[in-house]
Amino acid sequence: MSVEQPDASARTYESAVARVEEIIRRLDSGDAGLRETLDLVAEGRELVEYCAGELEAVSKGLEELRLDELVTRLEAR
């Protein structure tokens, strides 16, 4: 089985999760050899880190601000 390397710039949370589940199905099948297993595990870990980062970004606590406050912040940059 060839290990696909999806384009990281086009990655979305859903596509990453779908790929992780695909990897786990392949590993669960027991058909992967050592080299493929290690490659898949490495790819899966990288995707999990990406997904964890995405979740972390929307788990830090709700921040509420008005539109004019956001505009002021953006203009101050």
Partner: peptide, 15 residues
């Protein structure tokens, strides 16, 4: 999603 991701991470680690 966070719970499911943690489970996936554990499975990858186990594999």
């Amino acid at each position: 999603a966070a719970a499911r991701l943690a489970a996936d991470a554990r499975r990858l680690r186990d594999h």
